[in-house]
């Protein structure tokens, strides 16, 4: 019962106990931080976790140094079109993508360090158009939805080790605009998306088909929901959703994240767990990794939830030097990247 699982949290008890500041990373040349992410970087047979930061017109790569310090390795200048977001590619080394555009994404570009070619840094477009959603997939693939005046195209592009795009695969498009994608964990050929009219769509994305298998409805209380994570268990499809435009209700408070179980055979669904915003807080830009969710609130604080408990487990108040603007999980949920607009990024152990 979702209503019963909503328990107002005691903000004073949350604070920072479960988040420990590990290190701070400051890009002095950055005027406005747009996004932050982590990625694996292989050099001389050694794999390390690097940090990627983006401001409007450049993307920087940071390597770990001794004593929790970070050193900038390289900055890619991306030109006139502003960076909107970093698009990490899970389980891929030395390659990251960025989405560029003004109000919406107009181009996706890969950025690469070729250590075999005298540490040369490269960049090149992967896709251009009116792109509504993009997600990096396993095995160096990228899925995106884009719109022309007549139709929507949903496409998976494979990238080679040198970043160049290989054959693309067109997926069967639903009529509704796809706003977000999520891989179904443990099922290499299953992909889901959320649509502008509260739908969940399921595709089979093996090499032969891009078949649209099922359309299911999320519910009218949660317009334009965003899928963050999906996994299949006991014949049900569990989806972690955030609800940026949901209205506050007395029974459920202000919904931030929900775990919903869908039966793909019948398209019926049931709410499993419900995570609310702390009382008095609004607005959120969220990120999910494993069973952890984080979001920046309009107050300038960052809230962290345990999605299995449905509880807010940590609240980072606005830093004395400025409000938080970005919250992203590293490739593991044990590390939270918290960013400020001036380019400062703090790494917290969770």
């Amino acid at each position: 019962d979702e209503a019963e699982q909503f328990t107002p949290v005691l903000l004073d008890s949350l604070r920072e106990e479960s988040l420990q500041l590990v290190s701070k990373l400051k890009d002095c040349s950055s005027s406005c931080a747009v996004d932050v992410s982590t990625m694996w970087w292989d050099t001389a047979g050694c794999r390390e976790l690097y940090v990627v930061t983006a401001c409007e017109n450049s993307v920087s790569l940071w390597k770990p140094l001794a004593s929790d310090q970070w050193g900038k390795v390289y900055t890619w200048q991306v030109g006139e079109i502003p960076v909107i977001q970093i698009v990490p590619l899970p389980d891929t080394s030395n390659l990251v993508c960025v989405a560029l555009g003004d109000l919406e994404i107009g181009e996706i570009r890969w950025l690469l360090l070729c250590s075999s070619e005298n540490d040369s840094f490269k960049q090149s477009p992967v896709k251009t158009g009116n792109i509504k959603a993009v997600l990096g997939l396993k095995d160096r693939r990228l899925v995106s939805s884009s719109r022309t005046t007549q139709e929507q195209q949903v496409e998976i592009v494979s990238l080679s080790e040198t970043g160049r795009s290989k054959d693309g695969q067109t997926l069967m498009s639903p009529e509704e605009t796809v706003l977000a994608f999520a891989e179904v964990e443990g099922m290499r050929d299953a992909l889901i998306g959320t649509t502008a009219v509260n739908g969940i769509v399921v595709w089979s994305v093996n090499l032969k088909t891009g078949q649209l298998l099922k359309k299911m409805h999320i519910g009218y209380s949660y317009p334009a929901s965003i899928c963050h994570r999906a996994y299949s268990d006991s014949g049900l499809l569990f989806v972690v959703l955030s609800h940026p435009h949901a209205k506050e209700s007395e029974s459920c408070g202000n919904p931030a994240f929900r775990v919903v179980a869908f039966n793909p055979k019948t398209a019926r669904s049931a709410g499993v767990m419900f995570s609310s915003l702390p009382p008095g807080h609004t607005g959120r830009q969220g990120d999910v990794k494993d069973a952890s969710a984080a979001a920046v609130l309009t107050s300038g604080a960052i809230a962290v939830w345990d999605l299995l408990l449905g509880q807010c487990t940590a609240l980072l108040p606005p830093d004395p030097e400025g409000s938080w603007a970005l919250a992203r999980w590293a490739t593991t949920s044990a590390c939270l990247l918290a960013g400020q607009r001036d380019g400062t990024v703090c790494l917290y152990r969770y």
């Binding site: 299953a190 088909t209 649209l212 298998l213 006991s234 499809l237 179980a261 039966n263 019926r268």
Partner: peptide, 23 residues
């Protein structure tokens, strides 16, 4: 969630949907 809420559940839902006619 109970099966009565969600209807009959299949552990092989993905394979079964893949072999059915596409939408």
């Amino acid at each position: 969630c109970s099966e009565s809420d969600l209807g009959p559940i299949s552990l092989n839902w993905f394979e079964e949907l893949t072999t059915e006619a596409p939408l």
